[in-house]
Design a protein around this nucleic acid. Structure first.
Lengths: 228, 228
DNA sequence: ATGGACATTATTGTCAACAATCTTGGTGAC
DNA sequence: GTCACCAAGATTGTTGACAATAATGTCCAT
C-alpha cells in the first residue's frame, strides 16, 4: 500500500523516492535529461511535485539543475567518486572514534557477530550478502557513534556514490581485501580504542580509494587510452 | 540593481538569499515560525517561490520543516554546534592535508601575509578584522585543497553554525588562544606537511569545541544550574 | 554556401485558486 | 472537573494555467 491518493496520483515524497530509485538503479542513465513534463506523465504527478522532487534530489547530489535549462542525472566521475570517498574517510573516521568511546557490551557482541557473518559470506562466495553486511556494519558504527551531523553528511555522501560503490563491491577479489580491514575495525571498536578505530577506518577507506583508482585505469586502458 | 521583475516581485533565488540573510542576521529568531503567507507578503513574492526557498534553506540546515505543520528557524543547540564542529574538524583536517600537498609558492606567501595581518589585528584589538581574516584563512585552505566535495560539506556546516561562530569570536580572550593555533596551521602548510597540517587543524578545531563547551557552562551556571 | 536576424518550439519559472491537513476552541456526556 | 468529540480557522500541499526563457529551425542578404 503506497501513499497514493485515491485517483492514482502520488505525493511529493513518493515521487522523490521513485526518481531516486530509478537513478540509483540505472534506469535513468547518468547525463540523461529529466524533463519535468515527461516525469509528470511517467509518475502521474503534477509538475509541482516533480519540481519539488528534482530540487530535493539536486540537494542530495543525484541531480544537476541549471536555471532555465532543466535537470539531468548527475554523472559522478571516478575522480569525483574519489573525492566523495576521501570525505567519507574523514567523517567515518570521526564516527569510529566516537563509537569506540560509547560502545556498549551488547553492541560489541553484535559487531563481532556481523564480523563472523562477513567471514562466512566471503568463504561461501556470497558477494551480495557480504556487501549487505558491509553496509550494515558501517550503518551500525554511525548509529553507535551518536553523531547526528556526521550521520547526515554520510548519508548524503553515500547517496551520491551508490553507483561506484556497487560496481566496486562486485569486483572479483575485492571482499578478500576488505574483509581483514573490516575485522580490524571491529577489533579496535571492541577494544574501545578511539585512535585505533579511526586508524583502522582510514586504512580501510584508503584501500577503497585505491580500488577506485585501479578501477578507473582498468576501465580506461582496454580502450587503449582513448577513453578520457 | 536586484534581479527583480518589473512589477516588484522577486525571483526565487532572491527570496532564498533574503530569508537566509534575515536568519543569519537574527531578524528571524531561532525557533520562530516561518509562515509561508507572511513571507509572501514580506517579500512580495508568490507562495511557490517562498516554498522553494524554504526547501532550499531546509537542505542548508537553517530551516526545519515538518510535513503539514510548517517551517521554523532551526535553533542550533550548543550540543549540536559541537557536533557540527566535530565534523568540521574532520573535514577541515582533510582539506589541510590536501592543501599541504598542493600549495604553490605564491599561495605560501599569501597565507603568511594573512598570518601577519592576523597578528596585527590581534595586537590592535581589532576583533572584527581578526574574525574576518580567520574566515578568509579557512576559505583559502579549502580552495587550495581543491577538494570540491569537502568544500561543499564545509559550506553547509558553517552555514548552520554562523550564530555560535559569531558569538564565540566576540568572546574576550578568544583571539589570544586561537592566534597561535592559526599560525601553527600556516606554518605546517608552508612546510608542505600533510600530517602536520592536519594535526594543527585538529588541535585548533578541538580548542574551538572546548571553547563552545565552556561557553555552554558559562551561560548555564549564572542561572545557578536551573537552565537545562 | 554562409552568417545573421527572426520566428518557432520546447521547457522551465511563476502564479493564484483549490484541496488536504493540522490546530484550536468549544460543547456535551460522564 | 475531565475527557472525547466535533466544528471552525489557519496553514500547508497540490494543481493547472500562464509567463518567461533558452534552444532550434528558417529565411534572406551577402
Amino acid at each position: 500500500m503506497t501513499s497514493n491518493t485515491a485517483d492514482g496520483t502520488v505525493r511529493s515524497a513518493e515521487v522523490t523516492d521513485r526518481i531516486r530509485t530509478a537513478i540509483v538503479a540505472g534506469e535513468f542513465a547518468p547525463g540523461q535529461r529529466l524533463v519535468e513534463a515527461d516525469l509528470c506523465e511517467l509518475f502521474h504527478a503534477s509538475r509541482g511535485v516533480v519540481r519539488a522532487a528534482l530540487m530535493d534530489l539536486t540537494h542530495e547530489g543525484l541531480v544537476e539543475r541549471i536555471a532555465n535549462r532543466g535537470a539531468r542525472v548527475r554523472s559522478v566521475s571516478v575522480e569525483e567518486a574519489i573525492a566523495i570517498t576521501e570525505v567519507r574517510m574523514a567523517v567515518e573516521g570521526l564516527c569510529a572514534a566516537k563509537a569506540a568511546e560509547r560502545i556498549t557490551d551488547e553492541e560489541i557482541t553484535e559487531l563481532r557477530d556481523i564480523g563472523r557473518r562477513m567471514q562466512d559470506a566471503m568463504r561461501a562466495g556470497e558477494v551480495l550478502v557480504y556487501s549487505e553486511l558491509n553496509g550494515t556494519l558501517h550503518d551500525r558504527i554511525r548509529e553507535i557513534s551518536a553523531q547526528p551531523v556526521a550521520a547526515d553528511v554520510l548519508s548524503n555522501l553515500s547517496a551520491r556514490n551508490v553507483r561506484h560503490q556497487f560496481r566496486l563491491a562486485l569486483r572479483p577479489g575485492r571482499p578478500q581485501i576488505s574483509l581483514p580491514e573490516h575485522l580490524a575495525i571491529i577489533d579496535e571498536l571492541c577494544a574501545r580504542s578511539p585512535e585505533g578505530a579511526e586508524r583502522a577506518v582510514r586504512r580501510h577507506v584508503a584501500s577503497v580509494i585505491e580500488a577506485l583508482r585501479e578501477f578507473d585505469t582498468a576501465q580506461a586502458s582496454p580502450a587503449s587510452g582513448l577513453v578520457r
